[in-house]
């Protein structure tokens, strides 16, 4: 790609230089928009994702959409079929859910082991994130039944939950572990939608997060790792029980 002197005849569909420079930014932006649509459950599992349709919907040209889909494939929220294009991935079944939990357990127990001791500043951030999660949880408990259909409230709660875990994950020092945990994050979000059990384990999660924060603050990597393990095993247990009897897949609906 070279600069175009005025004497050269016009090349069809040449994008202006500004767009060229911002192409990565545009692609990342489009990628985020599509991710958001996927996480909000805007598309049904198995639904075909037409590039032209998506481009119209978010009002950009097909090129960044095509490129964004290449990036999003790694989240496994979408799948690519040869000669057919992209589809929304089918809902997770019980086996995939327990595999997902096992993968998460492996990555997060190692991340916390590497991250501990967190240092005074890190512990402070962890405590702050823990408090925000507890507050969001208290809000849900307070609302009782009314909280079940409240997408904003549960969305905020899950975001606080994720943010707490992210404090120690991001401090592990190995970018590949961080990246893989992120990729799992999108899947975990799907699991919550597939199970659609609402948030029924707020009190347990608050207590377990407190125990984790305590163990991490102690500075002992083994204790920290054990606390994360205990929490994730209980999360897995609760999720699988919520998924239904005999490990049958949860309802296929993607409502909140």
């Amino acid at each position: 790609m070279t600069t175009t002197p005025a004497s050269v005849p016009p090349v069809p569909r040449r994008e202006p230089a500004v767009v060229e420079i911002d192409r990565k930014a545009l692609r990342d932006h489009v990628s985020e928009l599509i991710l958001e649509l996927l996480l909000r459950g805007e598309f049904a599992p198995g639904e075909r994702l037409g590039i032209e349709n998506l481009a119209r919907r978010i009002n950009v040209s097909p090129t960044p959409v095509r490129e964004a889909l290449v990036q999003l494939e790694r989240t496994k929220l979408i799948t690519r079929e040869a000669l057919k294009g992209y589809r929304v991935a089918p809902p997770l079944d019980a086996t995939q859910m327990s595999q997902l939990s096992a993968a998460r357990l492996m990555l997060e127990t190692e991340a916390v082991r590497l991250a501990t001791p967190l240092g005074a500043e890190g512990v402070e951030r962890l405590r702050a994130a823990q408090r925000r999660h507890a507050e969001a949880g208290a809000g849900i408990i307070e609302r009782g039944e009314a909280a079940i259909g409240d997408a904003e409230l549960t969305g905020h709660y899950f975001a606080c939950d994720t943010a707490f875990h992210r404090v120690f994950i991001e401090s592990c020092g190995n970018p590949f572990i961080v990246e893989m945990t992120d990729a799992l994050g999108a899947q975990l979000h799907r699991m919550r939608q597939t199970v659609s059990h609402g948030v029924t384990d707020v009190a347990e999660a608050i207590a377990e997060h407190a125990a984790m924060a305590e163990a991490i603050a102690s500075g002992d990597p083994d204790a920290a790792s054990a606390a994360v393990r205990a929490h994730l095993l209980r999360v897995q247990d609760r999720a699988l029980r919520a998924a239904g009897p005999l490990g049958s897949p949860g309802p296929p609906s993607c409502t909140h």
Binding site: M1, A17, E20, I21, D22, R23, K24, R27, T63, R66, E67, V70, Q71, R74
Partner: peptide, 19 residues
């Protein structure tokens, strides 16, 4: 262009705008 994005997700290249 699509192949280049893929190569970037594999960490084998770094995309350089306009180049």
């Amino acid at each position: 262009r699509e192949a280049m994005v893929q190569l970037e997700t594999w960490g084998l290249v770094r995309l350089a705008p306009k180049k």
